[in-house]
């Protein structure tokens, strides 16, 4: 009989299963940009921390100045972190919308909703847990915690979008666990995980899925 038809059938089945259950409009380019933002953020944070350290050497006698400088540093770091998250999210939304439009898909449908919920559950948990760590003075573990929970979020999300995101998650997870053993080097691990790995992953996604279409 017509074998070509059967092959067509199988292809059609696979395509429908993927299209109806996975959100595939995620833009690879937005991953690259998110990585760049993270690296810039990490660089700004590194400079601020170094400045703070050197200011301690000069003003070591003045407790109030020290305290003020510490609060300033905290505010600065939180601002930088928020700016990175905001910029990355915004870029992600815009580029994903463009990509969805390109192949006539909706950006907000059952698949993207499911993807977002499953991504956010581990991520938000990790966010709150990191805040608790800061509250309890375990600041040295926050970078590792962020990496680990972000990795779990990616692995969880991989069931609802490109499977490849699972490997990004695994790398983040392993980086996070290694990071727990190198107290004081959190920022480097953070920059590597959120910066370099995002750029690598985003570029792979871009060449694998975006450019061919």
């Amino acid at each position: 009989m017509k074998d070509k038809d059967y092959l067509n059938d199988i292809t059609e089945i696979k395509e429908m299963m993927n299209k109806s259950s996975r959100f595939i409009s995620l833009s690879g380019l937005s991953g690259v940009l998110a990585g760049i933002y993270a690296l810039i953020g990490a660089y700004l944070a590194y400079n601020a921390i170094e400045d703070y350290k050197s200011s301690l050497l000069i003003n070591y006698n003045y407790i109030t100045i020290k305290h003020l400088a510490y609060i300033n540093l905290e505010i600065y770091l939180v601002t930088v972190a928020l700016a990175v998250v905001l910029l990355a999210t915004l870029t992600g939304i815009i580029l994903t919308r463009i990509k969805a439009k390109k192949h006539n898909a909706k950006m907000w449908d059952a698949t993207s909703r499911r993807l977002l919920i499953n991504f956010l559950i581990p991520l938000v948990t990790g966010g709150f847990f990191s805040l608790v760590l800061i509250q309890r003075n375990f600041v040295s573990l926050t970078a590792a915690t962020m990496l680990i929970f972000y990795g779990l979020a990616c692995i969880n999300a991989s069931k609802f979008t490109f499977r490849d995101i699972k490997y990004l998650g695994l790398v983040q997870l392993i980086l996070g666990l290694i990071c727990t053993q190198f107290v004081g080097y959190g920022l480097y691990f953070w920059a590597f995980g959120f910066g370099v790995m995002h750029i690598v992953y985003g570029a792979i996604m871009y060449f694998k899925y975006d450019r061919t279409k």
């Binding site: 059609e12 429908m16 109806s20």
Partner: peptide, 22 residues
Amino acid sequence: LGIMSILMVNEYAEFTTLKELL
């Protein structure tokens, strides 16, 4: 074939979703 494929991997599907996908 499309209807069955979609319903295999989703808990349920609405008429409008099926219409758009197919």
